[in-house]
Amino acid sequence: MNNQIGQITPLQFQQSRMLEQITENKAAIIETNKRTDRVVESFGGKLVGENVNEALTQIKVLSSKFDDANGRANKTLFRTPIVRP
Results as ranks from 00 to 15, higher is better:
residue 71 G to H: 06
residue 73 A to K: 09
residue 1 M to C: 07
residue 39 V to R: 12
residue 39 V to E: 12
residue 32 T to D: 01
residue 12 Q to N: 07
residue 63 S to T: 10
residue 72 R to T: 04
residue 80 T to W: 07
residue 3 N to K: 12
residue 54 E to Q: 10
residue 29 I to P: 00
residue 77 L to P: 00
residue 50 E to M: 13
residue 73 A to G: 07
residue 9 T to C: 00
residue 29 I to S: 03
residue 77 L to M: 14
residue 15 Q to W: 08
residue 34 K to Y: 03
residue 57 T to G: 07
residue 44 G to S: 08
residue 20 E to A: 08
residue 63 S to E: 13
residue 27 A to D: 10
residue 15 Q to D: 04
residue 48 V to C: 12
residue 66 F to R: 11
residue 77 L to D: 09
residue 18 M to K: 10
residue 14 Q to F: 00
residue 28 A to K: 13
residue 5 I to W: 01
residue 53 N to W: 05
residue 17 R to K: 14
residue 51 N to A: 15
residue 25 N to R: 09
residue 8 I to H: 02
residue 65 K to L: 13
residue 6 G to I: 03
residue 9 T to K: 00
residue 10 P to E: 02
residue 25 N to Q: 07
residue 42 S to M: 12
residue 18 M to I: 13
residue 13 F to I: 08
residue 38 R to T: 01
residue 59 I to F: 06
residue 66 F to E: 10
residue 43 F to N: 08
residue 4 Q to I: 01
residue 47 L to C: 12
residue 45 G to P: 00
residue 21 Q to A: 14
residue 54 E to Y: 04
residue 85 P to L: 07
residue 37 D to A: 15
residue 43 F to W: 13
residue 84 R to E: 13
residue 76 T to F: 08
residue 16 S to E: 11
residue 9 T to W: 01
residue 18 M to T: 03
residue 44 G to Y: 02
residue 63 S to I: 06
residue 9 T to G: 02
residue 63 S to A: 11
residue 71 G to A: 11
residue 73 A to C: 10
residue 4 Q to L: 11
residue 69 A to E: 08
residue 15 Q to C: 03
residue 26 K to I: 00
residue 19 L to D: 09
residue 41 E to H: 06
residue 77 L to H: 12
residue 5 I to C: 08
residue 34 K to V: 09
residue 10 P to A: 04
residue 39 V to S: 14
residue 43 F to L: 13
residue 19 L to N: 12
residue 45 G to S: 15
residue 26 K to W: 01
residue 77 L to R: 12
residue 44 G to F: 06
residue 41 E to K: 04
residue 25 N to P: 01
residue 64 S to E: 13
residue 45 G to I: 04
residue 55 A to W: 00
residue 70 N to P: 06
residue 44 G to Q: 05
residue 30 I to W: 04
residue 41 E to I: 12
residue 38 R to K: 14
residue 57 T to F: 11
residue 14 Q to E: 09
residue 47 L to R: 10
residue 11 L to H: 06
residue 78 F to L: 07
residue 49 G to I: 03
residue 15 Q to L: 04
residue 21 Q to D: 14
residue 60 K to N: 11
residue 46 K to N: 09
residue 72 R to W: 02
residue 51 N to P: 03
